[in-house]
């Protein structure tokens, strides 16, 4: 059975970070620090989310000491609903497995 898209543990970490900063734009490095993911994991996730219309990205002018414009990200409204649903589903699964291991 094909895996549900964006259902990995890494995607859940990213969704968590993006939900926290849903009202503002985040940069790639901020998301790396928040999630603890490596750039080789984070950027493919961002690319897929943007391609699926769950994330919007735009260029922001440089703010010193930065010298170059930076790409910034935030969830779209669809993305926000999807992220909440994924995080909730993950929490439910975690609770169910905890109950299962306790019995």
């Amino acid at each position: 059975m094909p895996r549900k898209p964006h259902s990995s543990k890494q995607a859940a970490l990213l969704f968590g970070a993006l939900i926290e900063s849903a009202d503002r734009w985040s940069h790639g490095y901020d998301l790396l620090k928040q999630t603890g993911l490596k750039s080789g994991t984070l950027y493919p996730l961002l690319i897929r989310l943007e391609a699926d219309g769950l994330l919007e990205a735009e260029w922001h002018p440089p703010v010193p000491p930065a010298r170059a414009p930076r790409h910034a990200y935030r969830l779209t409204s669809d993305g926000l609903s999807f992220a909440h649903a994924m995080v909730a589903a993950r929490a439910t699964r975690a609770q169910a497995s905890q109950r299962g291991s306790a019995t």
Binding site: Y29, S39, R67, H71
Partner: peptide, 13 residues
Amino acid sequence: QWGAAMRSEIYAV
């Protein structure tokens, strides 16, 4: 543009 995004981010690391 994603390559450019990663390139510009290196200056913030």
